[in-house]
Design a protein around this nucleic acid. Structure first.
Length: 738
DNA sequence: AGCACGCCGACT
DNA sequence: GTCGGCGTGCTC
């Protein structure tokens, strides 16, 4: 039994009085006693007990499902992800199966057999009412009958109770007669008001019926939750149909084009899958992409969505819908990964998106889990992105490149001055204003500036909990930590030297850029759009002139119709992340800017201190293909994924010394387990040494895929004072290609 | 992850 | 004298 807890599988005896042939199948949900109550887990397998072994095991209470709740392929994915990420299988279950395991349960017991010489057959009662010790005693003696089930939901409905009779005769009661006739015809009404509306009578007429006993409110079983209808969207600008060719191989990569074009290119493949009775799982990294892809597909094929804000009841309904015969497309976030579809194909949209990396629990990169799923189910996997990841390029021979127009771009060299708004940018903004067009300005961060620093002693005001500068938000004269949320009023004097000359540092945020724009072109309608301040852009969506100063959050906003300029105010800020994927992600960001005005080609103005970077050269010449090949070549030379496996081992504690001691011990243990000098980096303090009051030290293990589990063995057995976290394929790795 | 047990500091 | 902080250990 696998429970959604950070634990390995646990064994239980079959439910009382049940022998193996009738036991539930693997994949079924089973209720088991757990600590002082019960929990729902997934049956993952059986073991045969020999001799007297296992007598101390507890009995399962019973199964919730007659047929598997998750497929055999899903169980295989759970197991593989657990092995791959070095996480307990239960953690993986709780991450990837957010449906049906934390359902409300009714747990009932009754005494059975002979107690104290007296034969007893009690009635069912709630288990919580029986003292725990007695429950355990009866259980051990086999005198307890237990059952657990999900209570059936009920709703209150207005039902007709009596036919109309003499009591409703007469002209004054015509409305009541009409309402009652209507109710009998309908069978049930949602409420008095709803029935009154449907029968076109005053609400009081219905109330009178209830009062006189002709109708009444009764609890009836809740009808099945309806599935959300996806609004189809067609005629999307820039989404000319470029169908991907029919392709039989296990892996296909689609790159280039716009997001909509990539989704629509899959249609012929998806339609063929549906025609053969198979459903298609389409994964997207974010809520807004899920909605967009679903709307596009819903115009052609039966489509349902499953994502973070799908309610529990609807999730369960989708799980039921998945096993029905009628195939469909399920578009969802990673939460949909293990839906029990009759799979024909797995599609991963925006496969390079960092948002696919789970930030807690098993920390799997969802496209990797999707690959495991496709392999376990024996279906093709399709990976799509504006820019193919080097990992995918390495794996996939078959690829489709959709046409991508070369951008109309202008690079501004900031070394000649002009930061934060160069003369060129100001000039174009004035044109935008003069012609009543729209512009989007991309800033690297929200807030006003990267920090507030003293011009006398260069002291930077930092967060008391984290090893980071506090971001300056000028609007409310606030300092705020973007990591832990700590907030304080900006001081008047430097806390270090008491000088009054505190000033914002470079790397302007949305506030600063917006203020600059308002200063240089005062007549422009300036809106801000970031996590702090999501101004209403509906007037701009209708075509009104204006400038949006935004973080990358604007890529999740519906596009504007009249964009003449897209500006990246400081490209370098997206590159200085020190990660070996930073360049790839910055390039992907530039390509994704096309989503701000699909179907049009606004001027893209990029301000940078490094205009000669290969990334910009590739972008300007449409050299994505060569760029990815080059990245892959460098990954091979420096032995980075996919040519080696990378694991981050992080140790954190409240006391820095505790974390450091644990990390040093770990380094020794890893070396003893065979990690060579060139395989082990660290220990070193994490780039942000302290987060939320916890100090972290980290080690990197970079080694051949085949030996990684063996090399990591000591980490898996670590029992110590510091908190250990293992991240396989980490996304934040500094110090590559330097 | 919960939930127990257990050991030290500040209070009605 | 108790309440309550969170460190350690266990869950079939």
């Amino acid at each position: 039994m696998l429970l959604p807890l950070p634990l390995p599988p646990f064994s239980f005896l079959p439910p009382h009085g049940l022998t193996l042939p009738s036991a539930p199948e693997p994949g079924c949900r089973v209720v088991v006693p757990w600590q002082s109550g019960v929990r729902v887990g997934v049956l993952v397998g059986f073991e045969t007990l020999r001799g007297g072994a296992g007598l101390e095991l507890r009995e399962a209470v019973g199964a919730l499902d007659g047929r598997p709740f998750v497929s055999a392929a899903a169980l295989e994915v759970l197991e593989r992800v657990a092995a791959y990420t070095c996480a307990p299988p239960g953690t993986v279950l709780s991450n990837l199966l957010p449906t049906g395991l934390n359902v409300p349960l009714v747990h009932q017991v009754r005494a059975l057999g002979v107690i104290g010489g007296e034969p007893v057959l009690d009635t069912w009662q709630d288990a919580a009412e029986v003292p725990l010790r007695r429950l355990e005693l009866y259980r051990r003696q086999g005198l307890l009958d237990e059952r657990a089930f999900v209570p059936e939901g009920s709703v209150s409905r207005l039902l007709p109770l009596r036919e109309g009779d003499a009591g409703l005769d007469g002209a004054p009661r015509a409305n009541q007669r009409r309402a009652l006739a209507h109710l009998w015809a309908l069978g049930a009404g949602e409420s008095a008001a709803a029935l009154a509306r449907a029968a076109d009578v005053p609400e009081n007429a219905v109330r009178a019926l209830v009062k006189k006993g002709y109708a009444g409110y009764r609890d009836v079983p809740a009808p099945p939750t309806p599935l959300t209808v996806v609004e189809p969207q067609s005629g999307v600008p820039g989404a000319t149909l470029h169908p991907a060719p029919h392709h039989a191989g296990p892996l296909l990569s689609v790159s280039g084009g716009t997001r909509a074009a990539r989704v629509l290119s899959l249609l012929p493949l998806i339609q063929a899958d549906l025609a053969s009775g198979k459903s298609v799982l389409v994964l997207a990294p974010e809520q807004s992409y899920v909605q967009q892809a679903a709307s596009l597909l819903a115009a052609y094929v039966q489509t349902h969505v499953f994502s973070g804000d799908t309610a529990d009841a609807e999730r369960l309904r989708l799980w039921e819908r998945a096993v029905e015969d009628d195939p469909f497309v399920l578009v969802g976030s990673y939460l949909a990964l293990l839906a029990p579809l009759k799979l024909g194909r797995v599609v991963v949209l925006e496969e390079g998106s960092g948002a696919y990396k789970l930030t807690a629990g098993c920390r799997i990169f969802v496209p990797t889990a999707a690959r495991f799923l496709a392999e376990a189910a024996g279906v093709p996997l399709l990976l799509a992105d504006a820019l193919t990841t080097p990992e995918t390029r390495f794996l996939v021979a078959a690829r489709v490149t959709l046409p991508t127009p070369v951008p109309r771009a202008h690079i501004v060299d900031l070394r000649a001055g002009g930061w934060p708004l160069s003369a060129d940018l100001v000039r174009v903004l004035k044109q935008v204003e003069a012609r009543g067009r729209q512009a989007v300005l991309l800033a690297p961060r929200r807030g006003f500036s990267a920090a507030l620093a003293c011009t006398d002693c260069e002291h930077v005001i930092g967060c008391p909990n984290c090893d980071l500068p506090l971001r300056y938000h000028r609007e409310r004269y606030l300092l705020r930590c973007h990591q832990c949320g700590h907030q304080a009023r900006a001081p008047d004097h430097c806390p270090a030297c008491a000088s009054p000359s505190l000033s914002p540092t470079r790397a302007a945020g949305t506030q600063w850029i917006a203020a600059e724009v308002a200063r240089v072109v005062p007549s422009l309608n300036v809106k801000r759009f970031d996590r702090d301040k999501r101004e209403d852009l509906s007037a701009l969506i209708k075509g009104e002139a204006g400038v949006v100063v935004a973080t990358t959050a604007c890529l999740r906003h519906p596009p504007l119709p009249n964009v003449a300029l897209v500006a990246v105010t400081l490209l370098d800020a997206f590159l200085s992340l020190g990660d070996f994927r930073a360049e790839e992600e910055a390039y992907r960001l530039l390509l994704n800017l096309a989503e701000l005005s699909p179907g049009r080609r606004p001027l893209t103005l990029i301000q940078t201190f490094t205009p000669e970077s290969p990334l910009l050269q590739a972008y300007l010449t449409g050299g994505s293909d060569a760029f990815v090949s080059d990245l892959l070549g460098r990954r091979e030379r420096f032995l980075y994924p996919p040519f080696a496996s990378l694991a981050k081992v992080q140790l954190s504690a409240r006391e820095a010394a505790t974390a450091e001691r644990a990390a040093t011990w770990m380094a020794g243990a890893l070396r003893t387990a065979g990690a060579a000098a060139d395989e082990l980096l660290g220990p070193s303090a994490a780039p942000v040494a302290r987060i939320k009051g916890q100090y972290s030290y980290q080690l990197f293990l970079r080694t051949d895929k085949a030996v990684l589990p063996e090399r990591l063995a000591p980490a898996l057995n670590y029992r110590g004072a510091a908190r250990l976290r293992i991240d396989i394929d980490p996304r934040d790795v500094s110090g590559f290609l330097e």
